[in-house]
């Protein structure tokens, strides 16, 4: 599929799961896999790293 931001080709690994982050190799935008049906993925913009993120 193509990057929603810059239209570059976005390669999503077959074993990627919902909730994983994919980055566009061209523009660097990060997307979260919101849903996956076979090879068809729905992407949404990933959340920015928050002040309370971590372990």
């Amino acid at each position: 599929m193509n990057c929603p931001e810059c239209d570059a080709n976005l390669k999503i690994p077959d074993d990627a799961s919902v909730g994983e982050i994919v980055s566009c190799p061209d523009c660097g935008a990060d997307f979260e896999i919101a849903s996956k049906n076979g090879n068809v993925c729905e992407l949404k913009h990933a959340e920015k790293v928050g002040e309370d993120w971590g372990e």
């Binding site: 799961s17 919902v18 909730g19 994983e20 982050i21 979260e32 990933a46 959340e47």
Partner: peptide, 14 residues
């Protein structure tokens, strides 16, 4: 329960 799937969450699920 997750909000971002990291390698750790995948390892736990597997």
């Amino acid at each position: 329960v997750f909000d971002r799937v990291r390698l750790e969450e995948k390892m736990l699920e597997e």
